[in-house]
C-alpha cells in the first residue's frame, strides 16, 4: 500500500479505537478531578486539506494544541486540541481561584495544561497499546497556543506524506453544565497505520 486508502471498515475500526482511547483518557481526567465527566461517541471523518483549517472552528481563532510524539511499536504523534474556553474550564477543575472568562494563559496555566495533556494522552495511548497488544512510548508533551490552522498544519503535514487528507476524530465531553470539547488526533506513520490495522484483523 503506497498510501492510506480508507474504507468504511477502517473508519469503523478507528472509531472503536478512538472510543476506547478517549474513554480511558476521560476516565483518568475524571479520577484526578473527582468530577463526573461524560463523553459522546467520537465522530471520525476523513477531511480534505481544504477543510482542515476550519475543522474545529475559524482558521485564525486561537486554540491550544498539546502534542506528544510516540515511538516503540507505533511511531507518529498524538495531538489533543481544545478551545480556550474549554481549557479554562478544565484548569478550573484544579484551581482554587478560578480563571475568568477571557483571561489570558500564564506560565502556570501552560504547565498545568501540559500535565493535563500528559494524563489524557498517556491514558489514550495506553488503551490503544493494550487493544492492539503493542508497546507505545509517549514523549514529553509540548503545548502551543496559536491560530487553529497553524497548529493543525503540524498533523496535516504528517498526514500529507501518505494521504490527501487528514483523519479527524472529534470527542466532546462534559461535566454537569460545563461543555468541554476536545479533539484527539492520532497520527501514525504509514507503517504504524498498517500495524494498527493488521493487529485488529483488518487488511
Amino acid at each position: 500500500m503506497d498510501f492510506i486508502n480508507l474504507n468504511s471498515l477502517h473508519l469503523d475500526v478507528l472509531k472503536e479505537v478512538s472510543s476506547i482511547g478517549t474513554g480511558n483518557a476521560i476516565n483518568s481526567l475524571s479520577q484526578i478531578t473527582n468530577k463526573r465527566i461524560g463523553m459522546d461517541v467520537p465522530k471520525v471523518t476523513f477531511l480534505e486539506f481544504k477543510d482542515v483549517s476550519t475543522s474545529i472552528g475559524p482558521a485564525d481563532d486561537m486554540i491550544i494544541g498539546i502534542l506528544v510524539s510516540i515511538s516503540g511499536d507505533i511511531n507518529g504523534m498524538v495531538m489533543f486540541l481544545l478551545g480556550l474556553d474549554s481549557a479554562r474550564t478544565i484548569l478550573n477543575y484544579f484551581y482554587e481561584i478560578p480563571k475568568k472568562p477571557g483571561e489570558d494563559f500564564n506560565e502556570l496555566d501552560v504547565g498545568s495544561l501540559q500535565e493535563v495533556g500528559n494524563i489524557l494522552i498517556s491514558s489514550y495511548i495506553s488503551a490503544l497499546g493494550t487493544l492492539i497488544n503493542k508497546r507505545i512510548i509517549p514523549a514529553v508533551p509540548i503545548v502551543a497556543i496559536d491560530m487553529a490552522a497553524a497548529i493543525l498544519s503540524v498533523p496535516a503535514i504528517e498526514f500529507s506524506k501518505m494521504a490527501d487528507g487528514v483523519l479527524h476524530i472529534e470527542t466532546v465531553f462534559n461535566s454537569g453544565t460545563d461543555q468541554v470539547s476536545g479533539y484527539f488526533l492520532l497520527i501514525p506513520d504509514l507503517e504504524s497505520f498498517n500495524t494498527i490495522m493488521r493487529s485488529l484483523g483488518v487488511m
Partner: peptide, 8 residues
C-alpha cells in the same frame, strides 16, 4: 489570503 500558516 491564507489563514494561519504554520509549518506550511
Amino acid at each position: 489570503t491564507t489563514l494561519g500558516l504554520g509549518s506550511c
